[in-house]
Amino acid sequence: MKRRRKSRMFWLSATGCMALFAGLNGVTAVAGMSISDAPDEVTIDSIAEFYQPVAFNHAMHTDITSGDCTVCHHHTTGSPPKEKPCINCHNGGKEADTVSCRECHLAKPFEAAAVQEQQKDVDRYYHIDKPGLKVAYHLNCLGCHQATGGPVGCQDCHIRTEAGDKLFHAKKR
């Protein structure tokens, strides 16, 4: 997954206002992450073997949620989560070290190492049903797409590769 960050560095260094920069950082850390920190586009390519990568338009989706990160990011952006069972622990909305989906939702969630990891500490009691990356995307996306008329067909979002066509024994398009 590659990210294109909207960088404020250029503007900041041009004004030469490093003190302000430090101050801003301090503020955002307290109040939670800012939308402007987010990438405009995220390339999703964890199943690139069978489906071509998706250029996920993050900016467009933040517009749809009116800047509410918790619709997709649970508590990790520093706001209280929407899901009821999460509030018990994450009511404060403590910002996580990273907000990228793949850091928590593993691309290969059922490999032996991942299953072993699941046995450890807090995961064993609370995060016992954490979906893998591909599943997290689909569970997160499809509900809204169905409700708002977004694309829902498999290949509406990601076109199959040649290997994908072969897997499905699909007729040549």
């Binding site: 290969k108 059922f110 490999e111 299953v115 016992i128 689909h138 499809l142």
Partner: peptide
């Protein structure tokens, strides 16, 4: 080799969850 079956790995919706049987019961109840 401790890996999930091919169908589970392919499922895009998490309709298939692979794990220890006893833990799957916990997940199901949850």
């Amino acid at each position: 080799f401790g890996r999930p079956p091919a169908c589970v790995e392919a499922c895009p919706m998490g309709a298939l969850t692979f794990g220890k049987r006893k833990e799957l019961l916990d997940i199901g109840r949850q």
